[in-house]
Amino acid sequence: MPSPRQVNYDAIAHLYDTQPYRDKQPDPALRDLRQSSPPKAILDMCCGTGNQLIANRPHLPGALMVGLDFSHGMLRQARPKSQTINWVQADSTTPPFADNSFDYISHQFAFHHIPDKPRAAQAMFRLLRPGGCLVMTNLHPHTMQDWLYYRYFPAALTRDLHDFLPHDVLTALMRQTGFHPVSIDLNPIAYEEDLHHFHQTANQRDTCSQLLTLSDADYQSGLHHLTQDLQHAPSPYPVPTQITLLTLTAHKP
């Protein structure tokens, strides 16, 4: 497969929080852990602009919270949001923390960006204390081929089928790394989206990493197809679509 365009998150960091779906609610997995055994040290791996940690902070005011991201630009947006969270710039395959440092690691919508996935999994396993928990959330393109982005930009699906591990392969990787038990939850979400609104969103290419990784030719071809479909469409024009959310929960024995 040809090398994809790289997403320059430093360049779009100042726009990131204005994009759809960037608001965060408190992490439900962390909430459940808080009721049984409150974690004392939490790491958000590939934390972006830090919104998940900001949402979690009021519910665990005494916990050590660390956000790690490779992008200096993203962390520049995160740091003013909280002085009680440690923001660290580093590669997720070589995080600069001691073994057994964290009780809980979250990793949201980022694993597909990491070329060396086994090394990243090993790093997360190393950082967790025995009894600690990793919760990974992401899309699962292998069961969401009818997503509007893929319908109009099929090269994005081709790219994502390469970059996102199927759920069984991801489970096997985590078990081989040493996590046990490991569970996967696939949550298909069907909904309708106004195609006119989708056209406006797709025209803002930096709102979706799937669009940013496309060649200019593939991106323009998708926009042309979308524009043609809207020529005689009523407004609004709701169309069915679907995504699948994957949640992996893995424990370190």
Rank of each mutant, 00 (worst) to 15 (best):
F97A: 00
D44F: 08
Q89G: 13
N100L: 00
H112V: 11
T18R: 04
H162V: 01
P80H: 09
K252N: 03
T201F: 10
R159E: 02
P28V: 08
I12S: 08
F97V: 14
A98G: 15
S209K: 04
L195R: 04
C46W: 07
T94A: 13
S37M: 12
A123H: 06
H251M: 09
G131V: 02
R57F: 02
R119I: 11
S37G: 09
K117Y: 04
P115E: 01
Y104P: 02
N138C: 09
E193W: 01
D160V: 02
F198V: 06
D216V: 01
G178T: 01
M74H: 07
T241N: 06
E192D: 11
T249L: 08
T93P: 14
T18F: 05
S106I: 14
L157N: 11
Q242I: 02
W147L: 15
S235G: 01
L161D: 14
L248Y: 04
L64F: 13
T137R: 00
L148G: 07
S36G: 07
Y152V: 10
V66A: 08
S183T: 15
H225E: 13
A202Q: 12
Q83E: 13
D103H: 06
H59Y: 14
I12T: 06
L246T: 13
S101P: 10
A202W: 14
C133S: 15
W147D: 11
L212K: 01
P39I: 10
T94H: 09
L165Q: 11
S209Y: 10
Q77W: 05
H232F: 04
F109S: 13
C46H: 04
P26M: 07
C133R: 15
T171P: 04
H142C: 01
A233S: 10
L75I: 00
P118R: 15
L226P: 02
H162P: 07
L248M: 08
D229F: 13
Y191R: 13
P236E: 07
S36E: 09
P238L: 01
A202T: 13
H113A: 03
T207V: 05
P141A: 15
L157W: 11
A190K: 14
T244F: 05
